[in-house]
Nucleic acid binder design. Structure first.
Lengths: 341, 341
DNA sequence: TGACAAAATGTTACCGCTACCATAACCTTT
DNA sequence: AAAGGTTATGGTAGCGGTAACATTTTGTCA
């Protein structure tokens, strides 16, 4: 193919040009594109030909402005690096792009103020809907969303009173269930490694779930068994090391986030500790590697794909005007019991 | 906070409303926002107050349309799930969002036709620049990009003749280098597990690099040592199993993609094979887990973050009009030698 | 074949903002 | 205090489409 020259000042082919070429009014071109059945077969063909010949690409900015309907959906995550979000995004993307929506994706870096700015920027782009992973927001964020009138789904945790729509599972219940599970397995001293709880309600809820389980089991809380750690392999290793250094060692550790459990498992291997004989390990997030490791690691299975899927579907329904009345959708969780416990 | 009612038909506060409230013309409001120094301190304060009171959020669709300058950058990846892309996106996002740009992100599902549709959709949104990971495109994609006049970076592989800009490393050289490295370590029968080569030029180049190394070393190609596999832990396990089933087993295997090497290492553990004594393993992509596994796995270190960073910077420079003349930027790679070889 | 409804197409105004040029206000300077 | 140069502000006309209504064409049936 011959390399075409790059013309920087090209404002391009307009709908008008296409219209003239096809001997119709611009309006008919517009209709041929957005509502083909409204245009006669013959005219439509003429128009499509003209479009192909000219290489016309409709300006969606103009279209959205005129119609007051954009085709973008905004997604805000605490971090883009976290691969756990990838499945949810992919699922949402699959559903939305099939319907012609484009995704604006940004990360707040776990900062509520940053989320606020992003929400404002997205509203400035007149996104048609939004998905927020965090469930903690500044007042201004909530105010902006509230009077934007667009559907907004929060996915990080199941909310009794979401701003608008909640699609998730209960971090609290999941964490509690896993702790109960470990206790029923016979483990007596269950350590807990939390994610960083600052600005992260999910992290807090998971910790609270752990505590609730202990309380229900009439087990006293031992602060030395609780650690807060970042979401990384290194942090997981460190956390395990710390827990092994306390006076009365835990016989099981529940890692409440991400990839920490894998790090801990690697550390055990380095230390020649047998899992689960010397120490049992359970993880909150079910990463693919956890089921492939030797031993495989017991985890909570979170419906990440379903969350993305459902969030997208509900947004689409809201856009279509089907006020589903759905406010809070619980997609549940499951415990995958494996060799590590 | 009291829950505000959701008003669906709210077209919101306009610049005009702000202007009236601040006793200035809309034009002055516009300037106060986009070019504050052009407005007197006093007026600016009045305007900012009015904005705060009214909760005005500028309509960027209208702004972009009028000024012919949007604030969005498009990114197209073969897949959103692949966590390897996350670092690159994050890096690009960091640079771009700092300058007020928003990211449109989509995945092509490894299909060139899908990429074409997405490019068209992005151009319809009048994105200011684009980052494409794939380096293989349909003719129409190239044509559209060419006469769009916007900066477009390809990041998947270093290109001698990019459509516009190439920021990457050489998959061919990297793969060749690792193969040479293994050979120099004394391994005689080096297996190679390629990614799926269909529609994926990177996969092909990596395979070609392997072949080039063998050729340079005067080692004959043994087809039974070459396998193509998907990017997953399972596929990595399977690939290893297959290679162990051939007549004369390999003494080293180079996994040319993603997470396959980890899968293979897990399989070795299951089979009680010692790495690297029984079989050596090397990986193309340096995932975090590879250096934490026991044994740690030799990998190529790809400058993923630098790629995202540089791609974004170059786009920004182009937008600012600094025709840097950069066409192809090689960010190199390194071999991280670890216990597995 | 004329009347009338339905389908296809056209006309006009405007979406909400910014470029561009015009004007007004504010300083200097002599 | 008039002249001249800044600096600050305003008016007007679009950007490129679409909504809403007007008009024309087509089809149907008595």
């Amino acid at each position: 193919m011959k390399k075409a020259s790059r013309s920087g000042d090209n404002r391009g082919v307009l709908m008008n040009d296409v219209a003239r070429r096809a001997n119709v009014s611009p309006m008919t071109v517009s209709r041929a594109l957005s509502n083909p059945k409204m245009v006669s077969e013959k005219t439509r063909t003429k128009i499509l030909d003209a479009i192909e010949q000219t290489g016309y690409v409709p300006n969606r900015l103009a279209g959205s402005l005129a119609s007051n309907r954009s085709n973008t959906i905004g997604i805000i995550l605490p971090s883009l690096k976290n691969s756990l979000f990838a499945e949810t995004i992919q699922a949402a993307s699959d559903v939305l792009s099939k319907k012609g929506y484009l995704l604006l994706i940004a990360d707040s870096g776990h900062l509520l103020e940053e989320e606020e700015k992003l929400v404002e920027a997205f509203l400035g782009q007149r996104v048609r809907g939004m998905i927020l992973h965090n469930t903690l927001h500044t007042e201004r964020t909530m105010a902006m969303i509230s009077n934007s009138g667009i559907p907004v789904v929060e996915t990080g945790d199941l909310l009794a009173e979401p701003m608008d729509i909640s699609v998730s599972y209960s971090n609290f219940e999941a964490s509690k269930a896993m702790t109960m599970f470990l206790a029923k397995k016979g483990y007596k001293r269950i350590g807990f490694v939390a994610m960083i709880t600052e600005n992260n309600n999910r992290a807090r809820l998971r910790r609270d779930g752990y505590l609730a389980a202990l309380s229900e089991l009439n087990i006293g809380v031992d602060e030395t068994l609780m650690i807060e750690a970042a979401s990384s392999l290194e942090a997981g290793r460190d956390a395990l090391t710390k827990l092994l250094a306390i006076e009365i060692k835990p016989d099981a550790v529940f890692f409440a986030g991400d990839i920490m459990a894998a790090g801990a498992a690697f550390e055990c291997e380095s230390l020649n500790l047998k899992i689960p004989e010397d120490i049992a390990i359970a993880s909150f997030d079910d990463l693919a590697i956890l089921q492939h490791m030797t031993p495989s690691i017991t985890s909570l299975q979170i419906p990440r794909i379903a969350i993305g899927h459902e969030a997208a579907e509900i947004i689409l329904n809201r856009i279509k005007g089907q006020e589903t009345g759905v406010v809070s959708k619980d997609l549940g969780f499951e415990i995958a019991q494996r060799q590590s416990t």
